[in-house]
Nucleic acid binder design. Sequence first.
DNA 1: CGCCAGGTGGGAT
DNA 2: ATCCCACATGGC
Length: 256
Amino acid sequence: MSSGSVGVRLRALHRQLLAAYGPQGWWPVPRDGGSPRRGFDPAGYHSGDYRTPRTPADRFEVIMGAVLTQNTAWTNASAALKALLAARVRRPADALALPLRRVARLVRSSGSFNQKAKKLRSVAKYFSLPGSLSGSLPPSREALLALWGIGPETADSILLYAFQVPVFVVDAYTRRILVRIGLIQGRETYDEIQSLFHASLSPDSAMFNEFHALIVEHAKAHCRSRPVCDGCPVTRCLYRDRPETAGQHPRTPPLP
DNA sequence: CGCCAGGTGGGAT
DNA sequence: ATCCCACATGGC
């Protein structure tokens, strides 16, 4: 498949998801109640409980959330983030001042809490360097990947959602959906999948932000582990076009 | 009860 | 390189 047609397919996917679900307004910031905001106003990136992070505390909040939501439902991660903020953990120095056990207790609801406390400490140490959260110079991807607890998805989430660097965030949902619409086989690496987006779409951080969020929403609403194809807004899906190909993906049960 | 959730690191092959 | 597994809570 040529990169040109990949771009056509990806743009069509983005358009269909946006039409179906509307702007998502990530990164969700749990100011009041902790649930991601719906009905987000596309002209209002600075209103509501989402705003583009511009301060060190805002950026660090996104960074903590990116760690806490690793392999974890956002509701659980959000509760842990709320607990950290309630304990006045808003900047790297705040986290570094607490004993690891205390951080672990605060983030208990996010699961894997001992590991996540350790991960939070490693990112806090890195971002405690003066100016590292100013936004004037985003961290390098390599530097983030060198941190304990930061893999490619979390590194890219930090770059995109905390620093507005135009990188596409690949996750398990992206892989699942791209398999089902026939763009990939499923065994491609993270970087290979990311390259599909980077090579065929313009590097627009606001668009990458929305696209990734829409993919998550679509994976929850329709493209679940057990797919719910009724009402699916995506055309040219293997399930829609050729149901007999269902089951290619190891985690995809055959359709009824 | 089992499965899943906006992964990652470490160890074995 | 590529599997395999531990990590661990909370919702359905």
